[in-house]
Amino acid sequence: MGVTVEHLSAAFGKPLDAVFAERLAQVFTSPVTEAGADGLTFADGSTVPVVNHVPRFVPSDAYVKSFSFQWTQYQQTQHDSLRNSGFSKSDVTHKTGLTPDQVAGKLVLDAGCGTGRIAELLAEWGAMVIGADLSLSVDVAQKSLEHFNTAAVIQADIGALPFAPGSFDFVISCGVLHHTPDTRDYTRRLVSLVKPGGELAIWVYSPRLARRQDWIPLTSRLPHVAFNDWCQWIVGPARQDPDNHLLRLLYPVFPFTARHETRDWSALTLFDGYTPTYHGVHSEEEVIDWFTDFGFVDIRRNPVATAIRGRKPG
């Protein structure tokens, strides 16, 4: 007898849709045979702990501790549902080209889900969504998605995700892969997870953001609390007087903008831009070449620079 919907629901902390639970049990490299609030057991005999209703396939947040910090500090800042904002909807539309009709009833992987703001939108559109992230943002994402019975979150390295090949109708990764040790290689590792006929959509930093790389060796090593306090402080005058002559001297050598919806949003964006361990930048042509090398067809540019989508033949 296979794992039950009730047991999976206990593991993920909410009543799951029966169809989604069946897909969830089978999507891993080895199918789930037992599940409960404290762990999952797989057909190959392996187990992973479940903590706060999130299966943990990694022992720590490794090189993404800055994201663990920022998404604990800014849990609600970018969520459409909490801010009466259309930010995530615009992000998904312009960076992936996906629409509600395309994802409804499909199994979608959000690789690098952060606080779950995009996964939340996809679930609202009727998708079955699995969000994965290496950082402790998964605890925030789990709460963001707790009222969706077709969404689940795991903590895992997106370069070594524990899913069976060809599992997903869509794999998306927005603003994440450039923060891995090798953007191209980590993109390649997602390819096998796309089913034949399925699609991969990614957005990575363009060369427009290359100046940040000059600062990353310093700013990524600063204490997160102290640098976040500085970000909160500097965006104040930047929002009040963006043409301040001292700031105009700073912007060319240390680029940032404070023109976001809120002060917290501006501070978050500044912190996010200068604290990751890795900060890759890539041209559209480079990313399109990757998709071609990986065997994708119908490769297309989305409206935002370096947002590329392609279909796996089949």
Rank of each mutant, 00 (worst) to 15 (best):
L107K: 02
L109N: 05
A111W: 08
G112S: 01
C113A: 10
G114R: 04
T115Q: 03
G116C: 05
G116H: 02
I118H: 06
A119H: 04
A119F: 06
E120Q: 12
E120D: 14
L122Q: 07
A123V: 13
E124P: 00
E124F: 07
G126R: 04
M128P: 00
M128K: 04
I130W: 00
A132L: 02
A132Y: 01
L134C: 12
S135M: 07
S135R: 02
L136K: 06
S137Q: 03
S137D: 04
V138E: 01
D139W: 11
D139P: 00
D139Y: 14
V140S: 11
A141E: 02
K143Q: 15
E146V: 14
N149A: 15
N149E: 14
A151Q: 10
A151P: 02
A151D: 11
I154H: 05
Q155G: 02
Q155Y: 01
A156F: 06
D157K: 02
D157N: 13
I158P: 01
I158C: 11
G159Y: 05
L161S: 08
G166I: 13
S167C: 13
D169I: 10
D169S: 11
D169R: 03
F170R: 04
V171R: 09
V171F: 12
I172Q: 12
I172G: 09
C174E: 12
C174A: 10
C174V: 15
G175F: 04
G175P: 00
G175V: 10
L177E: 08
H179D: 12
H179R: 03
D182E: 13
D182M: 06
R184M: 11
D185Q: 13
Y186T: 13
T187F: 03
R188V: 15
L190A: 09
L190E: 05
V191F: 07
S192F: 01
L193Y: 04
K195M: 14
P196R: 06
P196H: 06
G198K: 06
G198N: 09
E199T: 13
I202G: 10
W203E: 10
V204G: 04
A210C: 09
A210M: 12
R212L: 15
R212I: 15
Q213E: 15
W215F: 12
I216C: 09
I216K: 05
L218H: 11
T219C: 14
T219Y: 12
A226D: 15
F227R: 04
W230C: 11
C231N: 08
C231E: 08
W233S: 12
W233R: 08
I234K: 00
I234A: 07
G236R: 11
R239E: 04
R239G: 05
D241W: 03
D243H: 10
N244Q: 08
N244M: 03
H245L: 11
H245Y: 06
L247K: 01
